[in-house]
Structures are given as C-alpha cells and as structure tokens.
C-alpha cells in the first residue's frame, strides 16, 4: 500500500467577502516532493498555502496531515501542527527587535523543543548552511532582503519541520538577491525536504519542481511534472497563462 501523502486537501473552499478565493481545491503533497504552485495574482494560490498551516481557516473541505484529518477550527491543533510545518513569507517577517540568532532560537526554546544551548548550536549550524555564519549578532535591519529571507528560512528550519511552505519567497527581493535565495531552496530540495512553493519564478519551477500545480479562479486547473506543464499543457487556460508569463 502506498504511503499516505504528507498533506492532502479535499474540496477546500474559502470566500472573502463573497468572493471565492478557493472553490473546491483538491491537492496533495507526497513526502520528499517539491510542488510549485503557479497562477495569476488573486488566483487563490496564497490562500491555499496559508490554509495549509491554519493562517486562513477554510469555510469547507478537509485537510489531512500525515493521513490524519485536521480540525481546521482548532487553534490548539494548528499550533501543534505548525511546529511540523515551516512557513516562509514574502516579506521575511523577521522579528526586527531580536538579533538573527534570537530570531532563530526563539521558537525551538519557547516551544520546549530544545534547551538554549542546543538551540544556539543548531542556529549556528543553520546560519552556516544559509551562508550567513557571521551575522548571528546582527539585527534584521542590518541585512539585505536576500539575507533576511535566508535567515527566515533558517528560522523555519530550526523547528526541524517535515514540510516547508514558501509564499512567494522571492517576490519582494531585488533581482540580484533572488538567486541566493533560490540557490538555498534548490539545496533544500536536493536534501529531500518536502516543499510547497508559491512562486512566479518559472525557470526555478521548471528546474526544481517534481510537480507543478496551476491554479486559476480558486480551482486546480492542471497538475503534472514541469515538462508536461511548461511544454504540453493540456488546458487552454494554462497555456494562456504561460504564454503571458514566459
């Protein structure tokens, strides 16, 4: 019997003031898989990824993590799940009053995952991994956007998540720093991290994704390996979107 997908979503519906952002989305992510979600602004892709860690509460539908249904109304349940699901935001959202090191050690210490010494050792290891070992004592405001985003990724990794969600991680960056963040994400993918990435970086999607999901008007229009989507999309809407963006 095949292993349960790490995340499975069925019939997800979410409306904001009468507008359907998600209109019955089915979606799944296998362990170790890299899924890139593409689609126009307002297509529902950010809403989808935010539903996956409970930042948005769906109106209807099911979310299963590791085969277990999530009570999407229970903040307590989400809080525990979020310790297994890392999230990286478009605007990095580092805590500006804390040093880089404290940004990374905060959650592992405060959720009881690690002692302060363990958390600091792990944080320094992760800072080396994101190529910022010398920035431990810097404040976020002293870093470039790309560096801040790499710290944000390290902060999420410090909880040793089973899956990482990326909500347009390079959209707020200068062109010259986008690459350093994408390189880091590439190396995470190589190491087998399960990743769901909302992105406009089509080159990156083509190269790194195991599967691409195209969303339009709150529905999954088409999903498949990058080659299939980028070269031979079956759906007219997918082809129209790609023609515009590529």
């Amino acid at each position: 019997m095949a292993e349960d997908p790490l995340i499975r979503v069925r019939g997800l519906v979410k409306s904001f003031q009468g507008v359907r952002a998600l209109d019955g989305v089915d979606f799944e992510v296998a362990r170790g898989e890299v899924v890139v979600v593409i689609g126009q602004s307002g297509s529902g892709k950010s809403t989808l990824i935010r539903c996956l860690n409970g930042l948005v509460e769906p109106d209807d539908g099911e979310i299963l993590v590791g085969g277990t249904a999530v009570d999407t109304h229970s903040q307590r349940e989400w809080r525990l799940l979020r310790q297994r699901i890392g999230m990286v935001f478009q605007d990095y959202s580092l805590f500006p009053h804390l040093t880089v090191l404290r940004n990374i050690t905060l959650a592992p210490i405060r959720t009881g995952r690690a002692s302060p010494a363990e958390a600091e050792a792990l944080a320094r290891e992760l800072l080396a991994r994101v190529l910022l070992p010398e920035k431990a004592d810097a404040y976020p405001g002293e870093l470039s956007g790309g560096q801040q985003q790499r710290v944000a990724i390290a902060r999420a990794l410090a909880m040793r998540p089973e899956v990482m969600l990326f909500d347009e991680p390079t959209s707020a960056l200068d062109p010259e720093t986008i690459q350093e963040v994408l390189d880091l994400m590439r190396s995470l993918a190589r190491d087998g991290m399960t990743m769901v990435i909302v992105s406009h970086e089509m080159g990156f999607a083509r190269e790194v994704a195991d599967r691409v999901v195209f969303i339009d008007r709150g529905r999954v229009v088409e999903t498949g390996p990058p080659v299939a989507i980028f070269r031979d999309a079956r759906e007219e809407r997918t082809r129209a979107f790609l023609a515009k963006i590529l």
């Binding site: 930042l55 903040q75 935001f89 999420a156 909880m159």
Partner: peptide
C-alpha cells in the same frame, strides 16, 4: 504588522508568547 503575528504563530508559538516576546 499582522505579519509579525503570522510569523510567530507559524513557528508554533502560543498567542500569549507572541504577545510577550513580539
């Protein structure tokens, strides 16, 4: 910003810890 709250919650912190620490 709302992003600070979302960042804290997405790390699995309790709302009261978000309040106190951020």
């Amino acid at each position: 910003s709302k992003g600070m709250r979302e960042a804290a919650l997405s790390l699995g912190l309790r709302p009261l810890l978000y309040l106190w620490l951020v």
